[in-house]
Design a protein around this nucleic acid. Structure first.
Lengths: 213, 213
DNA sequence: TAGATTGTTAATCGATTAACAATC
DNA sequence: TAGATTGTTAATCGATTAACAATC
């Protein structure tokens, strides 16, 4: 029973991305079939949950046997939207931005970095890897001649809100926000996904504390 | 009504870390009082939820007035465990690891990088920033002379599981895992927190897709 | 006092899990 | 057929929200 995309729970989407990562690993090592129980064990989940998540895909397994790895990979990618290439720009080429630009994992999942932007005159015109660094003011112009799907925002907290407005007016519908501050979209249509590495460490620390006492 | 730490929902812990980030920003700009409604608006949440989350802290606001920013910051930090310094090591000094080592946000929240480790002989003995890079095999020895609380794991998928075992046998109770694969702790006591930047982009892409069609 | 906002309850909503018929 | 595993239902569990008495 395929679910309409919009009815798929957020928690399921996140888990599907994790299943995909493991399945790709398994596929590389030549595995052709997999069971819900094996996926669940590998990720520390309940096997009912895995089957329920997979049932959102419309793809079906074979009772008594399991799922075909290649098929699962394809249908998860179709749901997530990573069965095609996404053009991504990087806004903010500081310490973190520089790191993100060199991160291989993006490309592997179909996210292609097509441009980098910064406001620092010293950086503009220089390159980072194979990417030229443009002025942030040229963002809208750049988007006229390039199809840009997503922006990775890695600017300081102070300038984040202003840059979000520029990204929106350039017509980019999605922002992955690494700036350590909450930003408001001008349009309700804009999707903003927050990531904060320090917050991840804090979540970890919270779980460790009882032991530390 | 203070809640025992263990009864605080995971979702609340994550939001508390986000509140903290905004409150610190507000504190820097001189704001002394804040209301649940203002916090909620800034983060796109419901104000009941904010009050309920805050009620886990034990700290109380003043009816008709709101909460004291400085007090809230302190009590969130106390709950999260970031009212003290955490010593952190970085394991894997590749592209991403290098980036993470230069990330300022960790230090700002009390996470102090005390060592870096890699298996590549060419890297061992060199430095990254002010950190010397040690052999992974020296991890246990290092932990005998240094109090290490957490490890940031940024090695390739292939070696991740083995390195987790080394980290565990060195007695480190928490791991922030950037390796793009699920790893199993040997001990149930070990806390592993997963982070995958490509998965964050996939979650964003999923939300953007309906627009892209 | 009058106005505002908290702290908390009860109702709602959504997500997880156990269980098992269907079926390969 | 016998054994295994899916797909799905119903029960459970947990998280969110509306509402309002308490109170500054």
């Amino acid at each position: 029973m395929t679910k309409p995309r919009q009815q798929i729970p957020k928690a399921t989407v996140t888990r599907l991305a994790f299943y995909l990562r493991e399945l790709q690993q398994m596929h590389r090592s030549g595995l052709e079939n997999i069971q819900s129980k094996a996926i669940a064990e590998r990720l520390g989940l309940n096997d009912s949950q895995v089957r329920r998540d997979i049932s959102c895909l419309g793809t079906v397994g074979q009772r008594g046997v399991g799922y075909k790895v290649a098929e699962l990979i394809e249908s998860i990618q179709r749901i997530l939207g990573t069965d095609r290439t996404w053009n991504v720009i990087l806004v903010g080429v500081g310490n973190l931005g520089r790191a993100l630009s060199g991160y291989r994992g993006f490309e592997q999942q179909g996210f292609h970095l097509v441009g980098a932007f910064d406001s620092d005159p010293k950086k503009i015109g220089t390159s980072i890897g194979s990417l030229k660094i443009h002025r942030i003011d040229d963002l809208s112009g750049f988007c006229l001649s390039h199809e840009v799907d997503l922006a990775i925002l890695a600017v300081p907290a102070d300038s984040a809100q202003g840059v979000v407005r520029e990204i929106e007016s350039a017509g980019i519908p999605g922002i992955l926000n690494f700036a350590p501050i909450a930003v408001q979209p001008s349009s309700k249509e804009t999707i903003i996904q927050e990531v904060d590495l320090a917050i991840e460490l804090q979540r970890l620390a919270f779980c460790v504390v009882p032991k530390a006492l």
